Simulated scan of single mutants.
Amino acid sequence: MDLQTTIIGMVLIALCVVPFIFVYNKKKEKQQLLIKQLKAQAITSGCNITRHDLWHNTVIGIDDNAKCLFFLRRTKDGEVQRQAHLAGVNKAYINGADNAIDKLELILVHNSSKEGDTVLEFYNSATLMQINTELQLVKKWQAIVEENLIK
C-alpha cells in the first residue's frame, strides 16, 4: 500500500511540475531568440554587443567600443528595431518618469536637427498591465548612454 501511494504521489507531483518546466523552457527560448536577433542586427552594422538587458519582449544592447546602441521590441503588431550611433547623439533623457506612468521612453537627441530623435519605448500601459523593472532599466540605460557620450 505504501509503494502504491508513493508512486501515485510522484506521478501527481510530476503532472503538476512538468507544465511549469515546459513554460519556463519556452520563455527561455523566446528570450534567447530575441538576444540572437539583437546580436545579428549589431553584426549587420559591424558591431558586437558588449552589454544587454532583456525584459518582456524587449531587448536593448550596446557596443561600448563602437558606441552604438541597439533596441528590439516585439509587439503583436510586429517588431520595432532601433539603432543609434552615440557619436551623433547630444543627450539622453527619460520621458514619462512621473507619478502616473503611462509610457516610459528613453529619448536620444541627435546633434543634427535633420535626424529626428530616437525614441526607445521601455513601457507602455496600453500593452502591459503593470510596470515592473522598466523604471530601473530606463535609468540604467540613460546612465550607460550618458557614460558613452562623455568618453
Score class of each variant (00 low, 15 high):
Val23Glu: 13
Trp55Cys: 05
Ala87Val: 07
Phe71Ala: 00
Ala100Val: 12
Gln37Phe: 00
Leu12Gly: 03
Ile101His: 08
Gly61Asp: 01
Leu38Asn: 06
Ile43Ala: 15
Asp77Ile: 09
Ile35Ser: 12
Ile60Val: 05
Glu29His: 13
Ile35Arg: 03
Ala40Lys: 13
Thr58Glu: 02
His52Thr: 04
Ile7Glu: 14
Ile94Asp: 05
Asn48Asp: 08
Ile21Asn: 06
Lys30Asn: 14
Gly78Arg: 01
Lys27Ile: 13
Ala42Cys: 04
Asn25Val: 10
Phe71Trp: 02
Phe22Ala: 09
Tyr24Gln: 07
Tyr24Ile: 02
Ile49Ser: 01
Asn95Ser: 08
Lys36Ile: 01
Cys68Pro: 01
Ile60Met: 01
Leu38His: 06
Val89Ala: 08
Ala92Ser: 11
Val23Phe: 10
Leu15Glu: 10
Ile101Cys: 06
Asp102Arg: 08
Gly46Asn: 07
Val89Arg: 04
Ala42Tyr: 05
Ala40Met: 03
Ala87Glu: 12
Ile21Val: 14
Gly88Ala: 14
Thr44Ile: 11
Asn57Asp: 10
Val11Ser: 13
Cys47Asp: 10
Ile101Trp: 04
Asp77Pro: 00
Ala92Lys: 04
Ile101Glu: 06
Glu79Ser: 14
Asn57Ile: 03
Val80Ala: 11
Asn99Gly: 10
Leu38Tyr: 05
Lys67Ala: 03
Leu72Val: 01
Val18Ile: 15
Ala14Thr: 11
Asn25Pro: 07
Lys28Phe: 09
Glu29Val: 10
Phe71Cys: 02
Lys67Thr: 01
